[in-house]
């Protein structure tokens, strides 16, 4: 994991506290999901036997048709939904008492930036996570500066969220979770609704961020370019998991699950 920033080192060193196998962070998977099952109150089964292991520094695509269970899975990763089965984030189990720590570790970026950015100003939004982690005011300000610099939006702290373009909103959305020092970034449809230039900037940004990343998307071109590993979900199950290059060549597999070969 290329560590380029002081803050990232900071976060990295905390990881060992939760580590199961004696302070060797490299060997703890960033994310471990074991036979996860979930049904909504109306009886609709959204996840069946979902198991997934993501290593530190990996960049993984989560693809599949709408309604396959991708978003439901993502909402489980930081305990907003909870089904049957085990989830661990960097060695820490997702359980009720662990939720505050888990939510700092999993940087979940929702699809619609207007849902993600719920504060009047950019500063308040990026500060929201660190503030609710109980950090001191100085620490919060440092983290906001750092996170905005990471997404190349340092000058935007005082801007009003509703004045931003779609691409800017998306970058700020990512900053709102970076400021929490997450172990893993989880992004839902990050390129949806962006114009070509904003999409290009986003891909560049994501490729530069050192974090372990899980991206749910329909944008197969982005998958091919950015995400070396691909997980295909359909009808509440993981139906394929492998190297993007290889799965992309399996046109029959892609077509069987409503995906397009880019």
């Amino acid at each position: 994991m290329p560590v380029t920033h002081e803050r990232a080192v900071d976060v990295g060193s905390k990881r060992t506290v939760f580590s199961r196998n004696g302070g060797d962070p490299g060997r703890v998977p960033a994310l471990l999901v074991e036979s996860l099952e979930f049904a909504y109150p109306d009886g609709h089964v959204a996840l069946r036997e979902v198991s997934l292991e993501i290593h530190q520094g990996e960049k993984v695509a989560l693809v599949g048709p709408n309604g396959a269970g991708k978003s439901t899975l993502m909402l489980h990763l930081n305990g907003i939904l909870s089904g049957e089965g085990e989830i661990e984030v960097a060695g820490l189990r997702v359980t009720e008492p662990n939720l505050p720590a888990i939510r700092a570790k999993v940087g979940l970026v929702f699809q619609n930036p207007d849902d993600q950015l719920f504060s009047p100003t950019v500063f308040e939004d990026v500060a929201f996570g660190p503030l609710h982690m109980g950090l001191s005011e100085d620490e919060v300000r440092d983290r906001v500066d750092w996170a905005l610099a990471q997404v190349g939006m340092s000058d935007y702290a005082d801007r009003l969220s509703h004045h931003l373009s779609a691409g800017e909103k998306k970058r700020i959305s990512i900053a709102t979770v970076l400021s929490m020092g997450p172990e893993i970034l989880v992004l839902d449809e990050p390129s949806a609704g962006l114009d070509p230039r904003a999409r290009r900037n986003l891909i560049t940004l994501l490729s530069e961020l050192p974090h372990t990343t899980l991206v749910s998307t329909h944008d197969m071109l982005m998958v091919r370019e950015l995400l070396p590993r691909m997980v295909i979900m359909d009808e509440a199950r993981i139906v394929a998991d492998g190297r993007t290059k290889e799965l992309m060549d399996d046109v029959a597999l892609l077509e069987a699950h409503g995906l397009e070969h880019p």
């Binding site: 909402l75 930081n78 907003i80 505050p100 939510r103 700092a104 999993v106 979940l108 929702f110 619609n112 849902d115 993600q116 719920f118 308040e124 500060a127 929201f128 996570g129 503030l131 609710h132 982690m133 005011e137 919060v140 300000r141 709102t176 979770v177 929490m180």
Partner: peptide, 19 residues
Amino acid sequence: RIYNAMLARGYTGQHLTLN
């Protein structure tokens, strides 16, 4: 959805702001 986004960032019911 906003509530979920808030939960995801550690919201526990207290609305904290800096001064």
